[in-house]
């Protein structure tokens, strides 16, 4: 064999580590999640995305570096135009390694993913139900247990676990508040549920995330997360 592979492996290995960090840094800049983590679910999901970014960086660096390294180190230099590469056509150990190791990684990420899913969808004891109705192209909200009224803006108390009970009148819609991260479709004929606990007081926007016809882009609603006493006051206001 003409090439000194041990040296090449060493250099490439160092570069993989360096590039994992570089790519991770680039991805962090390129994939800016919204600054506000508005719900109890947000942090868990953001962390999960962060973990995936590391996976992307590591696996990406591994392939890109070995590819880039080969392009530089194993290019046909002037005078080598007619030369052939080193003759080897497989290696069982390596093949098994890069089948089994990804399998383990996949299993780990599968477990993490399942745990986070369980965490963000877990029912809470003191849930407050809000009925959400989507129709072309607006939203309606009702507060069972707080009286008979419907609103076009959503007002909820902070740190109160919510159970959104959602239905669609005409076509598919999807409930999405960017700051709350989680999303759920509304389907005509069935009731879908979404659990979310707002943790930040403020004014947000609810956006429909499932193409629902002409004015889909503008199917928005205001969402206000307020303190409990403000919420109670608001309820009383609605009842009057």
């Amino acid at each position: 064999m003409r090439s000194n592979y041990r040296r090449h492996f060493l250099y490439a290995g160092i570069l993989v580590v360096v590039f994992t960090l570089v790519i991770q840094w680039i991805l962090d800049l390129s994939l800016p999640l919204p600054a506000i983590q508005g719900s109890a679910q947000s942090a868990a999901i953001d962390n999960l995305i962060g973990q995936h970014v590391w996976l992307i960086a590591g696996a990406g660096a591994l392939v890109l570096v070995i590819m880039g390294y080969s392009i530089v180190a194993f290019r046909a230099r002037p005078g080598e135009e007619d030369e052939e590469g080193d003759y080897f056509h497989g290696h069982y150990g390596l093949e098994i390694a890069w089948t089994v190791i990804p399998l383990i990684v996949v299993a780990i990420y599968g477990v993490i993913g399942t745990q986070v899913l369980a965490q963000v969808t877990a029912p809470q004891d003191n849930e407050m139900t809000v009925e959400v109705e989507g129709l072309q192209w607006s939203w309606r909200f009702a507060y069972p247990g707080h009286g008979e009224f419907q609103t076009t803006e959503m007002v909820v108390p902070v740190n109160q676990p919510l159970l959104l009970s959602m239905s669609a009148v005409d076509v598919l819609h999807s409930f999405w508040v960017v700051e709350w991260r989680v999303k759920q479709d509304l389907v005509p004929g069935i009731v879908t549920e979404l659990r979310v606990t707002p943790t930040e007081v403020g004014e947000f926007q609810l956006r429909c995330a499932e193409l629902c016809g002409l004015r889909h882009a503008y199917m928005l609603a205001d969402v206000r997360v307020v303190l409990q006493e403000d919420f109670d006051a608001w309820i009383n206001e609605q009842l009057e």
Binding site: Y5, V63, M67, F74, A76, E80, E84, E95, T99
Partner: peptide
């Protein structure tokens, strides 16, 4: 992944032309 790794292993130690 098997495909990706096999590809870069194919390039490794070759005489690449572009």
């Amino acid at each position: 992944g098997v495909k990706f790794f096999s590809w870069v292993a194919t390039m490794w130690g070759g005489r690449l032309r572009f």
